[in-house]
Amino acid sequence: MSIFKKFFGSSSETSDEVDDTTYSQSQDVNAELPVDEQFTYNFKKNGGKFLYCENTSELNEQFENILEENDWFESEALCLESRLFTMLEENKIEFENPKSPRFLLASCESLIADEGSILFSSNQIKQKKPNELPDNIVLVATTSQIIANKGDGLREIKRKYTTNYPTNITTINYFEKAKDENFLHYGSCAKNLYLLLLEDL
C-alpha cells in the first residue's frame, strides 16, 4: 500500500498500482517502530555503542567496563557538568583543566529517534563545537529523553527552560568514520560514542 493511499484512502481498486519500491524497506519498517526502538535502530546504524542500564549501579558498572575496555583509568576527561563529576572522581580520572582529555563525559538534551542522533546544548558542551570535543564520548541519558525528531527536541528545550534558553544547540549524528564520504557527511564530525541509557520510565 502506498503512503498516499494510507493518508487519503483509495477512490478505486485500479489505483492500487503504485510503485512501492521507491521506499527502502528499512524506512518503512523504521517508521512503524515505537520511538525507543526507532532510536536504537538508527543510533546503532550510525555506529553508536548502546548500553542499556536498569538502575544507577548498573550504569556505574557499565561505565567502569568502558574505562577498562579503553584503558582510560587514571587518565584525563573533559566534563562540564558538576552532577557527573562523582563518576570520574570514583575512578580517579582527572577532569579539572585537562590538557589532553581521552574522552568527554556528558549528558544531553534529547535523543533523536528518526536520525539516531544526540542533541546537545551549552548546558553540556558550553560553547565548544563538535570538532573541538574529544574523539571519544561517553553519554549518560535516560529513556524519557528519547523523542521523535529535532522539532520535538527544540520544543522540549523551550518547555524545559522557559526563559533562560541554552545556546550552542547542535546534534552529533555520526559515531564512526564513514567508509565512503559523500555530501551528506560533509562538515560532519564523527565521534566514537558510548551511550549509557538509564531506564526512568
Rank of each mutant, 00 (worst) to 15 (best):
F7Y: 10
F8Q: 01
F8I: 05
S10C: 09
S11L: 11
E13L: 13
E13A: 12
T14I: 04
D16S: 13
E17C: 04
V18G: 02
D19L: 02
T21P: 00
S24Q: 10
Q25F: 10
S26H: 12
V29P: 00
L33M: 14
D36R: 14
F39I: 04
T40H: 03
N42M: 01
N42K: 01
F43M: 08
K44F: 01
N46Q: 10
N46K: 06
N46M: 03
G47S: 09
G47W: 00
L51D: 07
Y52G: 00
C53M: 05
E58K: 06
E61T: 13
Q62T: 09
E68A: 14
E68N: 14
E69G: 03
N70H: 13
A77V: 15
L78I: 10
E81Q: 15
S82P: 15
F85I: 08
F85A: 09
T86V: 13
M87W: 13
M87G: 01
E89A: 14
N91K: 12
I93E: 03
K99N: 14
S100D: 15
S100E: 15
L104A: 03
L105G: 01
L105E: 01
A106Q: 11
A106C: 14
S107V: 04
E109G: 02
L111F: 13
I112T: 06
A113I: 07
D114M: 05
D114H: 03
E115S: 15
S117F: 09
I118D: 01
I118G: 10
I118W: 06
L119E: 05
S121N: 08
S122N: 13
K126F: 12
Q127G: 07
K128I: 12
P130L: 00
P130E: 05
N131T: 05
N131I: 07
E132K: 11
P134D: 05
P134L: 07
N136C: 03
N136W: 02
T142K: 12
S144H: 05
S144K: 05
S144R: 03
Q145I: 00
I146P: 04
I147Q: 01
N149E: 06
N149W: 01
L154A: 03
R155P: 00
R155K: 11
K158R: 08
K158Y: 08
T163R: 04
T163D: 11
N164G: 06
Y165A: 02
P166D: 10
T170P: 02
T171Q: 10
N173D: 10
N173A: 08
Y174D: 13
Y174K: 09
Y174P: 02
E176D: 04
K177R: 07
K179A: 11
E181H: 08
F183Q: 09
F183E: 10
Y186N: 09
Y186T: 10
K191L: 04
N192D: 15
N192W: 06
N192H: 15
L193V: 12
L195W: 07
L197N: 08
L197H: 11
E199Y: 14
D200H: 13
